[in-house]
Each structure stands twice: as C-alpha cells, then as structure tokens.
Design a protein around this nucleic acid. Structure first.
Lengths: 357, 357
DNA sequence: CTGTTAGCGCTTTCAG
DNA sequence: CTGAAAGCGCTAACAG
C-alpha cells in the first residue's frame, strides 16, 4: 500500500447539542411496563408476541416501547433462553472472495429466518478455528457453519450439543451435515477438457491435505487421466501445505518440468501459477494452458480469460444455512450431505499444446 | 495433578465421538467451584484473574475448569458487566475487497486486545445500517466501527452512549472519531497525473452523496483542474446514486461524450468503466486513459494495469480499532479524526491523449 | 484470601 | 388474560 504519513487533525467538535444522553441507563422491559401500567411479564409477552395479551394492553406497550426507544437486551434473553439468535460462521480466509461470497449466501438465508451471522476467520489455522468454536460456545450460538480445517473444533461443538454444518469441505469425524461441490466431477471435467485439447503432460497444483475438497479434486484428476489411458506422473503433482511459504518455489520448479498444462485446484494456487507464468514471459495458451478450480472475477478480466470450474458459491452458503436451520428443528434427523454441481467455463487460457512440445 | 488432568483429557478425547455428550448441561462456574471445593466467587476470581486467590486454590480451580471443559457463558458475563467484548463493525459491501481488507485490519487490532469483531454488511442501505446498530445495541457492544451511509445509526448509538468510529467516510452529525484517507489529495494527485500527460477532457465518475470520501474526491478533482486553469466541464462529471441500476447507461453516455481520460472515484466505478471501455473495443491508454481511486488486486493483473490511488486500507482498519479502544479508556477525550495518506501507483492505463483527439 | 449476598434484564411457569 | 416469583450464570461489593 502507500507510505502513510499520518496527520492527526484533531477537531474539537463544536458545542455538542448532541450530548450523549449520557449515562442514560438503557431502557428495560420494566421501564416500558411501568410506563404502560402493566407488569414486566405482560410487556414481555406483548413485545415477543408469545402468549396472550389484551389488544389494548399490547397497543399501549408497543407504543411505550417505541416512545422510549426500547432495545431488548440480547444477553438477558440469551441467558434465560439458553440459546441466541446468532449463528457462528468460520471461514479460512476472509480476504478470499470465494469465502466472502460463501458468507454472503449464508448471511442472506440466515437473515431471512431472523438469525444473525457472526463471521470469524481462522487463517486455515486449526488453532484459531478452535478458538472461534469456543467463542461461539461462549455466546451460546444455536449452530455453527464452517469450512473446516481441523476436526477438533467440530468435535468440541458437537460434544456440547451445538449443530455444525461443514461447507466446501467434509472433514469432521463426527456425524454432521455438510454441503459440498462435487469436486471430483469438477476436476474430472477440467482435466478432460485439457485432454481433449491434446494435452498429456498435465500438472496438478493442489493443497496437501485431507480436506475432501482437495482429495476429490485429486481423485477427479487421476480418474480422468486413467480413463485416457495415461499414467499420472508424480513429478507433475505438486501438493503444497496450507499456509506454506514456499509455494512460489514449488510452482516455479513445476514450471521447470515443462508441463503443457496446469490444473490449479483452487483460486489461490491459480493466481500464483498465473503470476509466475506471466513473470516468465510464457504465453497463455500458446506456451502453456491453465485451468482453475473456482471461478473468480479476475479470471474473466485478465487476457486471456482463465478457464475455470465455477462453483455455485453463493448457493453453497445458502444451502448450508438452510441445513443448519432445518437441523435446529429436527436435531435427530440423520446427517445429510448435499452436493452441488460445478460447471466448466471455458475461456482463452486453454488451447492445444504447442506442436513442438 | 498434571497427570490427572492429562488422563482426563485423553479419556474425554476417546469418548464416543459420535455421541453428542447430548443434553449435557453446559458446565458452569458453580460446577467447577464445587469440583474444587470453593465458592463460585473464588472460582470467578481465579479464572478471570481479577482479585485475590490463593495459589493452591487457583491451581485447583484452573485444573477443574480444564478437566470439565468449562466455557464461560458470555451472556451471563455481559448481562452482569453491562458490556461485552464484541465490537460491532458494519461495512457497505462484504463482497468488495476494499471493505474486506478494512475489516481484516480491524479484526487484527481488536484481537490483539482481546476483543472480537462482529461483522455486518448494510449494502449501502441506511435502513440496514440502522438495523445493524440496533443489533449491536442489543448485544451491548462496547463500540461500533462503521463506514457510514446515513447518520441515523451513529446518532442512535451515540445517544445510547456507545462509542462510534467512522472509517473511510466522515458523516455523522454527532461528534465521533474517524479515520480517513486524504481523499482530496489522492484525487488531486490522480487528476494532476492526467493533466501532466496532457489531458484536458478529464471525466469524473463519482458517487452522488454527501459522504466525505466522494465530496473530497470531487473537490480534489476540481482543485487540480482549477490550478491548471481549466474549467470543470459539468458534462464530464457523472454522479451516480449509491446502488443505482443505471450506472452502466450513465457511464456509457459519458463515454459518448469522448473524454480523453476518466478518473473513477472508487473501485466499483473503475470496474464498470473498465468493462465498458473494453466492450467498446477502446484501447487503454491509446484511446482513453483510466485512473481509479482505490487499488485492488485485479488492477495489477489486467493488461494494461490500471493506474490507481492506493489507500492504506488495512491500516485504516487498524487505526479505527485503535481509536475505538482508546476511546473506551477515555470517553471524554475530544473526538479525533485521523487522516492517512494515499499514494498514486502509475501503471499502463494512463498515457498521453491521442494526437488527433 | 474467601464466602455470602445481591442482582444484571429477561422469560417462563403457575396461580389468580 | 395478567402478575408474582423464580431463576438463567456470572461478578462485584462487602464482610469475615
């Protein structure tokens, strides 16, 4: 970013006609009950809409609440009811647009049902993921949705009776709902696309993990090669650790091995590959072809565009939220795994291998 | 003791993983107090670290807590203390990388001080912003950071005594802290850059608003033109409403007016302009130059790269959080506005106007 | 150093 | 239909 010369412009605001109604004790149910001449219980019933209240009392109460600017104390309610309306969501990387979109989908579905989302990032660190789980436990979240990184967090939540839905990856060793992309099929289609163009030296860039997303993508890649009668070349498969710092070197050395095409199993790896390809002055798709798993806006903006396996990301989020909400109603239903279908978007980054290659 | 704990932990780890230790009433302070043979108050002191506790009692308590897997009930604590550790953050668009990065900066600073962030998006809708404010009020957030859209939310929060910090834009009509980019200067530099290349028909794409960010950018643009002895041409200034649906048409008709350069005052408008320029087959910078306010990853990836005014986005977030935390300590300090300096990143999208233009 | 006591604000029986 | 009463789990005086 820029060099930042901070300038403190201390502006003492003018005489505040807008004094914080300071120290004004927040309005409580008791206040509005008194104001309306009823008891707190009746006020509670009127405002929550549960239980009988005479129309006239209700009206009076609602008006009093409005007049005094009543804001219910969520902590008190949660304490009493032993559950809140805030669903926890933890994703691997808040800065990655894939997760942002996922969260947006979750948020929308949740909001429609009167829930809120609390979003936390864990930087793909199972330590941080666990901390997030604890935070959600502490606030008595009715459920948690996550892109899992380790199994401890899910296990903890599950043990405490909190419903968990895994999105994008299936990982927990306890039974829980999940919604996934059909990774194997997506990877298979991507690889077949490359094969059909005539490629044989197809490299795979994947995350070294037991996450089903990457396992599935690896499997799809292998399956496609196998079907084509090709033996996967171990030298052309690069598995990087999550959060590794040597990704650039690994990819660079992969490039040295001269594959004619690269299948990058996630948007981050695709970006790395793309950058290195550009830095080396290689031309897409003449010198090398590139396919990404997960379609992001930039892939359509660069020239040539990047061929990508598009996931229904927003929908993935929506489904996860819906699954969670449904589970709240039926805690004993057997765990359910939904799989959504990806689709291959062909752009300019893939073409036939060079004749001389 | 250490051994004992280890045993307990491992046994709980091997406990039937698939069985939610179901309906297991969550462990409370009273439970661990009983377990350690003390009172709840002592347990509270031991675990919170506030107040005197004999070393031996503390040790016993800590172990009991560990052994039972104690997770403090945040609602109870918040109810009692009348304030939580969760800071509210509301941004205009969760999907926009600018806000994502801002949030990341806030999150980091907050976390370092033991606070958590609750992130909400308002889609630039002051209605939604107000709802978010109410939610934060309900959860007794100790403070709220926002990219303001209307003034009602801030006013409400302020009235209830909740500290507010505005980021990216200064808007409230009540005194509150803010941290901003020096928009006028950034816009001025961008415009001067264009002028120095020889442009005279420089268009401005801006959001029709009273947000200081856009007001400042407009002012910087005008100032630069003025200094160059040019009269701003109203036909070349397009002000779109936030969330308007006719942005494309407006920009298209701007293009028809044949400016030799466009200064887009935010990343979204820059993207729109860029797309339309591309669709028309215009070439950057030969046919037209483009500068964006706010540098985003894609601007470096496309060809040619987009010249942009880079903001210290992450730092903006950090500062906002720090300001908020500082205010918690000194509620009566006069409101403070910090301004960070942007920097112009020159790339290929800007060049001299076509000779014949 | 520790326990007792008293709520925080809300919801929920349970009698009127 | 309504109110009284009893906590939810935690912490902050305040005496021991």
């Amino acid at each position: 970013m820029g060099r930042l010369a901070a300038v403190a412009v201390s502006s003492s605001a003018t005489a505040d006609a807008s004094e914080p109604a300071s120290h004004a004790r927040p309005v409580t149910l008791a206040d509005i009950a008194r104001e309306a001449g009823t008891s707190a219980s009746t006020a509670s019933r009127a405002l929550s809409g549960r239980g009988y209240v005479s129309p006239v009392a209700r009206e009076r109460l609602l008006q009093a609440a409005e007049r005094l600017g009543y804001v219910p104390n969520a902590s008190a309610r949660t304490l009493k009811q032993k559950t809140s309306r805030v669903v926890g969501v933890v994703v691997s990387d808040l800065g990655n647009q894939f997760y942002a979109r996922l969260a947006a989908g979750i948020e929308q579905a949740l909001r429609e049902s009167g829930y809120q989302m609390m979003l936390l990032g864990d930087n793909s660190q199972s330590e941080e993921e666990l901390a997030a789980a604890r935070a959600f436990l502490a606030m008595r979240a009715p459920g948690v949705i996550m892109t899992p990184v380790g199994s401890a967090a899910t296990a903890l939540l599950h043990r405490q009776g909190v419903a968990v839905v895994e999105v994008d990856r299936r990982l927990a060793d306890v039974p829980c709902d999940a919604v996934l992309t059909d990774n194997e099929r997506g990877a298979r289609e991507a690889t077949e696309h490359l094969l059909s163009l005539g490629h044989e030296r197809i490299a795979l860039l994947v995350v070294e993990t037991e996450w089903t997303s990457d396992v599935g993508r690896l499997r799809g890649y292998r399956a496609a090669l196998g079907d084509a009668g090709l033996e996967p070349d171990p030298d052309l498969v690069v598995a990087v650790e999550p959060g590794a710092s040597d990704v650039d070197e690994r990819v660079a050395s992969l490039l040295d091995r001269r594959p004619t095409a690269i299948f990058a199993a996630n948007n981050q790896l695709a970006e790395t590959a793309w950058r290195l390809i550009r830095e080396r002055g290689l031309r897409l798709p003449r010198d090398i072809s590139l396919v990404a798993f997960d379609d992001l806006p930039w892939m359509e903006m660069v020239d040539p565009g990047i061929t990508a396996v598009a996931q229904p990301t927003f929908e993935l989020g929506r489904r996860a939220a819906e699954l969670l909400l449904r589970r709240a109603v039926a805690p004993d239903r057997p765990p359910q795994v939904e799989q959504l279908e990806p689709s291959l978007v062909v752009r300019g980054s893939t073409g036939a291998p060079r004749a001389g290659a």
